[in-house]
Amino acid sequence: MYGLKKEWEIEAPARECTLEDYVGAEARWCPGCGDHAVLSTVQRLARDLQLPPEKTVVVSGIGCSSRFPHYMKTYGFHGLHGRALPVAEGVRSRRPDLDIFVVTGDGDCCAIGAGHWIHGIRYNMDLTILLLDNNVYGLTKNQTSPTSRVGEKSNTQPHGSFFAPLNPISVVLGIANASFVAQTVDWNPPHLYATIRAAHEHKGASFVRVLQRCPHFSSHVFAPVQEDFSQMLLMESERGVKLAEPIRGMFPRTLEHDPRDLSKARELADRTDVYPIGVFYKNDNASRYDTVTQQGLEITRAEKMAAINGMLDRFAVQGRN
């Protein structure tokens, strides 16, 4: 299978996985939290694609959103604040056979994990990265996030956020070797599903920003968008996401956008009058670091021993030749 060595071989699944096979512990997010919708979408996607639960790994950092792996019944890695990506890259580095999802929050990804974020996008390893962006620090109770809007009050900036928010989509589109960049919303399950599915299908680091409601600290931020669909711009493409009717018809504003067009993607990302949703950018030819890190998996133990013996020969001082 995939030309992999024996240790990776699996038997063709003669089983049918149901939704329950992906449902882990009961989610402890607040009622009304957008994270629930993302969770059930990923569970449905796994079921629809029949991803073997034992071959699926969900890696996260720390935050409300990062509790995600606990609520799946696959393998999971609930790691450190900001550090989901390096871990996921390590998992991927020698395991071409796994399906890997990364779940991160706006503090986790865009503040403490910003360095890893930039490089993770550049490495372009095959990972489905979901940024659950609620514009606020949820778990630690309402502190300003890098994506908080100017003037948003929080417990650390009670007079309102000082800085212009960082736009995660614009940031990622500015990183060399980015290969898949999309945006969706937690409150439209068909679009959420279609976007995550397209991200999962893409081979490389697929970055999806999910606009996510926090019922406690930032409900007012996305509530108007949820109520008024004209605040969203549906980007459509055969190469990206295309919704079927009647869902499509709910969006008064649509735009045909070819995700191969990087400068158009950047222009769309920078729009402040609407939230464009769909696939901004997709490049199937970006170089993938995992093709490098997975080299040598087929080397046998005998070959390893021979190679090391050869190296030791170079340091030998007997024989005085």
Binding site: F77, L85, P86, S93, G115, G296
Partner: peptide, 28 residues
């Protein structure tokens, strides 16, 4: 590479150990 392995130069030491831990978690 003669033994089938790799050196990963990470973006910082935190990522370096995180990557190693990810590898190890995955059985490598």
């Amino acid at each position: 590479e003669q033994t089938g392995g790799i050196v990963h130069q990470a973006e910082d030491e935190i990522a370096a150990i995180g990557f190693a831990i990810g590898c190890s978690y995955a059985g490598k």
